[in-house]
């Protein structure tokens, strides 16, 4: 929490400000954040050039397969991952589960993901993220959802996609929806902005800010279903500023080689010759799932 930070701020300085929280998101741009379930995978991710790792107890495709309630990871596992990596470590808390978030903050994780991949703890409220020193990332399927999360204090938004499917179609749908509405809002007149705020169920000042700047107030990354270097480059060309890759790496035939290829593809997302080069000889990608056949869609969690 803001006034009980693990280390006291040095004199005349402040921690946990919006500038500092959004600042780390700025530093993660153009990079790949990889899901890892143990320290071995964390090392592979860092070796491959990940900008951060996301510690969770099971990758989304396993959560999908196993069913049951998915929760915050064991602190011991998160500590283990922190011990072997030098890059930022993120971890997931359930939607609305502010105590899991408090625990993650006390462990010193660098970002908390209030994530729909875990089973929600509250079906009406998200976490009040302003109350924390640690920054939060939240998922969104559309612009209204993104702005509601930002109004609750999220400092990074990721399009949700459909995690654990290896199918990029939902990520594309969500990115197109968010950027499409941003483009329309920049063209709207002042009277129309009131109607946009009502339609999006989002705070008017944030809608007005988008009208002025033409972009979200915080970085927008992409997650959910990315499995190949081309998928990562697709997300980047559609306007995402970084990518999260979950099951796509450690459920493929050769995680290390695929992870490196996705890192290179994210940097050189506009260069088809380099994309062709890094896409060669990666072995099989994770098996994919059709969205229509899913029993549970994670993307619908969040309000």
């Amino acid at each position: 929490m803001a006034d009980t930070s693990p280390t006291a701020p040095r004199s005349g300085s402040s921690t946990g400000t919006q500038l500092v929280k959004r600042g780390l998101a700025e530093m993660l741009k153009g990079g790949v954040i990889m899901d890892v379930v143990d320290s071995e995978q964390a090392k592979i991710a860092e070796d491959a050039g990940a900008v951060a790792v996301m510690a969770l107890e099971r990758v989304p495709s396993d959560i999908r397969r196993d069913g049951g309630v998915a929760r915050m990871s064991d602190p011991e596992m998160i500590e283990g991952i922190k011990a072997v990596t030098t890059i930022p470590v993120m971890a997931k808390a359930r939607i609305g589960h502010f105590v899991e978030a408090q625990i993650l903050e006390s462990l010193g994780v660098d970002y908390v993901d209030e994530s729909e991949v875990l089973t929600p703890a509250d079906e009406a409220h998200h976490i009040d993220k302003w109350a924390f020193t640690v920054p939060f990332v939240c998922g969104a399927t559309n612009l209204g959802e993104a702005l509601r999360r930002i109004s609750e204090g999220a400092c990074m938004i990721r399009s949700k996609g459909e995690a654990g499917t290896g199918n990029v179609v939902e990520a594309v749908r969500h990115l197109r929806s968010i950027f499409g509405d941003i483009r329309k809002i920049t063209q709207a007149d002042n009277a129309e902005l009131f109607e946009w705020a009502k339609r999006l169920q989002a705070p008017l000042p944030l809608v007005q800010e988008i009208h002025q700047t033409g972009k979200l107030p915080v970085p927008l990354f992409c997650a959910g279903g990315l499995a190949t270097p081309a998928d990562a480059a697709l997300a980047m060309q559609l306007g995402a500023e970084s990518v999260f890759v979950g099951s796509g790496i450690f459920k493929s035939d050769n995680p290390s080689i695929r992870a490196k290829a996705i890192v290179e593809a994210t940097t050189h997302f506009n260069d088809p010759a380099i994309l062709a080069k890094v896409s060669r000889g990666l072995g099989r990608a994770m098996p994919g799932l059709e969205i229509a056949g899913l029993e549970t869609t994670f993307a619908n969690r969040g309000w």
């Binding site: 930070s5 693990p6 280390t7 701020p9 040095r10 005349g12 300085s13 402040s14 921690t15 946990g16 400000t17 500038l19 500092v20 600042g23 780390l24 030098t86 930022p88 903050e105 010193g108 994780v109 660098d110 970002y111 020193t133 640690v134 920054p135």
Partner: peptide, 13 residues
């Protein structure tokens, strides 16, 4: 590297 600590220690001054 990271001499001032992790993200919760990040600051402005």
């Amino acid at each position: 590297r990271n001499a001032f600590g992790r993200q919760v220690d990040s600051f402005e001054a």
